[in-house]
Structure formats: C-alpha cells, structure tokens
Design a protein around this nucleic acid. Sequence first.
DNA 1: ACAATCATGTAAGGGGTTACATGATTTG
DNA 2: CAAATCATGTAACCCCTTACATGATTGT
Lengths: 179, 179
Amino acid sequence: MSDRELSMTGRIVCGMITCGQRTGYDIKRFVDKTTRHFMAISYGQLYPELKRLAEAGLVVGSAAPTGERARTEYALTEAGREALEAWLRSDAELLYELRDEAMLKLFFSDSAPDRRIEIVRAMRARNERKLAELRALEPHAALGPVGPRLTLELGIGMSQWLIEWCEAAERRLASEPEG
Amino acid sequence: MSDRELSMTGRIVCGMITCGQRTGYDIKRFVDKTTRHFMAISYGQLYPELKRLAEAGLVVGSAAPTGERARTEYALTEAGREALEAWLRSDAELLYELRDEAMLKLFFSDSAPDRRIEIVRAMRARNERKLAELRALEPHAALGPVGPRLTLELGIGMSQWLIEWCEAAERRLASEPEG
DNA sequence: ACAATCATGTAAGGGGTTACATGATTTG
DNA sequence: CAAATCATGTAACCCCTTACATGATTGT
C-alpha cells in the first residue's frame, strides 16, 4: 500500500500488462520485439518487480497453470491503472540515456586517423543491422495500435538518418582524409 | 601487469588523457562538455579507474600540487597507448544503448490517447533543449580536431532530425487524432 | 524422440549514480 | 570576504545483466 510511484521497470511492466501481456514470460517476449530498441528489460528485473508490484497492490496475480506447469497471469488493479495514467500524464523530466561506443571511437579517432573511415563504416554497418531488425517488425505493427506504430516509425527513421549521415561522412573522408 | 583490456570507463579515461586532460578533475570537466551526450562518467567511476589503470601500468600519475592543494597529473604509458590503439583498431561489436522514456510513453499512449500530442510536444521540447546545449559548444569545437567535430555534428544533426519528426507527428496528430 | 518453446525464478557480480566529506585557491 | 572553482576521494545504494537451475509442454 506504500509505494504508488512506478519505477522505470514498473512502468514497462504495467504498460505491457495493459497491452495484453499476462505472464512474466509474455512481457519479456513482447518487450524484446517491441520496445527493446529504446527500453529493454531482463528476467532479473522482471520477476522481482512483479512481486513488488503485487505487494504494493498495483497488480494482482492469479494461478493459471497449463497442465502441471506453473503459470501466473497478472492484471492491473485500479491503483495500478491510476499509477500508469499518472505517469503518462505527468510532465516530469523525461529520462534520456545514450551510450554509443561508435561515437566514442569517432571522438578519439585523431589518435588513429587512418582508421577513421573504418570506424564510420562499422557504425553504418551496425545501424544497417538494426534497421533490418526493425523493418522485420513493420508488417506486424502495421495492424496494431498507434503508439507502437509511431515508436517503430521513429526507430526506423532514426536508423535511416544515421546511415545516411555515415554515407555522407564516408564520402567526405574518402575525398579529403583530414575532413 | 595483468589487465591490458580497457573497460568502457578505461577507454574514456585513456582517450581523454591523449586529448590533453591531465587530472581526474580535468577529465570529468572535459567529458561533461564533449562526450556527455553519448557517453558520460561520474567521479565514483573515474578516480577508482585511474587507480586501477595505474596499478595495471597503463597510466602513470605524478604529484603536481598547486601550492598546498594535492593534485595528480596522469600520462599514458607505452602499454596504455597500445591498449587505446588496440581498442580503436579492433572490430569487436560496438556497444549501443538507448533508454528513452519519451518513446516509452509514446508506445503506451493508446492508454491515454488525448495526451499523445502532449507527449510528442514534451519530447520535442527535450530535444530542443539538447540541441541548444550542443549548439553552444560549436564555436569551441570548430577550432579543434576532426573527431570531436564529427561527433558534435552528429549530435546536432540527430537532434534536428528528431525535432523535425516531432513537428511532423504533431501536425498529423492535430489533423487526425487517431493518426 | 528430440528440439523448441513455455514458464518461473535466483545468485553473483558489474556498472553506475548520488551524496557526502574535505579542504585549497582564485576571482569578483 | 564570499562565492566559485579546483581537486580528490569514498560509501551506500540502485539498477541491471548474465548465468544458472528447473521442469512441463508443444511441434516436428
């Protein structure tokens, strides 16, 4: 009854339950094919968080085994719906964290200028792989609700923009190695 | 003598030393105004890492007090230069991590469709602040080496692209609220 | 029958931030 | 003389990942 403020993990979990995911396993699987590219989760966070949310009265779990196999289905309580809504409607500072090793290499590339173009190529390759992954999700997302469609569109667009930036940078570096 | 492979923190530290930063304090300050938008560091990592790197023989510290105030200047050893180069030249998978709360809200925005446009607006505002911060660094970076110039250009371009995406999404949502 | 998938969890460890503690020096 | 900046560090904590452990069920 105490902690009505959702942690980031709690937000993912409650949100995914409203998206129709019932078990911890379902949530993990769904996250991996939807929000993973901008917000991931692991079992080590997920199951303990489901327990905490249940203790706090934001979700309720009910036994729903398949034969002999243990299985718990979760649903939001009224308090849980309120907590999720409160977060969606709050205008608190939005967390944004980026860690990009390719950019770090590029930043230090004056220590190995001959490798600069290779670093950009590796960065482009990484973004091409990511773009392909996201593209593969498009047909499925096209049928669903607006939110997921928008974030996928955003991820694809950003990847494309990055690839184009890399291509332009490669051309520049190829023509004038100091540029 | 054992650990010649740089951790991510070690890469930042060694790289920043080659960029002319001498003390822990210098490194932190410099990171905050250069790589922070794609790779941050805190004192809690920095000072212990300098100690580890010194023990491993990758950096050497020398006492260089200013009057009574303790102060240690660091330089790379030959092994340190090699470790940094080895990393820059390796073609191992490049770490990329993004955590974006604005996108998470957007993903779940079908639970509060009336707020969807506000979420996009908040996302745009955040990116406009970030763009302004990066723009402020441009005049200084323009004089320096290529690497830092490229990463700054990339950060600025990405922010601009995101802002434009948000503007387009806002127009779409304003005209057809289900879009 | 075998492999893939469903399903739940924990333990250990790594990585990282925040807040605190301390004090000297420089600048206005 | 006060405030900002220089400078070094630590302790507590939070978050998160990886690897492991276990076993049932479904599909081929």
